[in-house]
């Protein structure tokens, strides 16, 4: 099952490499990884998505917790949560295609952030499956370049991950 694990990490040199190293060392896979400082400059917030059965996920969270730099973590997929990813995508847009792509962007509530006579650069945010659906709608033939940030997420309601 796909999981989103969100980690508060000491904003210290080498901390990120310890997290990434753990995954390769123990043969766990990382599907996406995002990391940035938080409002507290001594902490980074790291979000990663991975797949595995319950046993594997339990081992992953236990081993992450063992890292000295990991302050706290939560498996967001255990409760209701909001998940977002941002994608920038360049697509062919000439002739009749141009209007078609525009319509598609509107349907997915994306934005065209740059234009040339033959292409659009589009920004779109949402859960990963929405971004996947957009890519499918536009079609491989039209796609020139795709950049995705990876997933970040937060729990719904009162639940917070903080010190």
């Amino acid at each position: 099952m796909r999981r989103i694990i969100s980690v508060l990490l000491e904003n210290a040199p080498g901390a990120l490499s310890r997290v990434v190293g753990l995954f390769s060392q123990r043969g766990y896979n990382i599907e996406s990884l995002t990391v940035a400082p938080t409002e507290d400059e001594t902490l980074s917030r790291l979000t990663l998505t991975t797949v595995g059965d319950d046993h594997k996920i339990e081992q992953i969270t236990k081993h992450l917790n063992k890292l000295i730099d990991v302050v706290k973590l939560v498996d967001l997929t255990e409760g209701s949560h909001i998940e977002r990813e941002l994608m920038l995508i360049k697509v062919k847009a000439s002739g009749a295609q141009r209007a078609e792509v525009k319509r598609c962007v509107d349907i997915f509530r994306g934005q065209i952030v740059d234009v040339t006579s033959t292409l659009y650069t589009i920004q779109i945010t949402g859960a990963s499956d929405k971004l996947d659906a957009f890519l499918q709608a536009v079609g491989d033939a039209a796609i020139i370049e795709v950049v995705r940030t990876g997933v970040c997420g937060i729990s719904r309601g009162e639940k917070v991950l903080s010190l």
């Binding site: 046993h55 339990e58 081992q59 236990k62 081993h63 917790n65 063992k66």
Partner: peptide, 8 residues
């Protein structure tokens, strides 16, 4: 003492 040793 190590939770990761348990049920590994």
């Amino acid at each position: 003492i190590d939770p990761a040793s348990i049920s590994k």
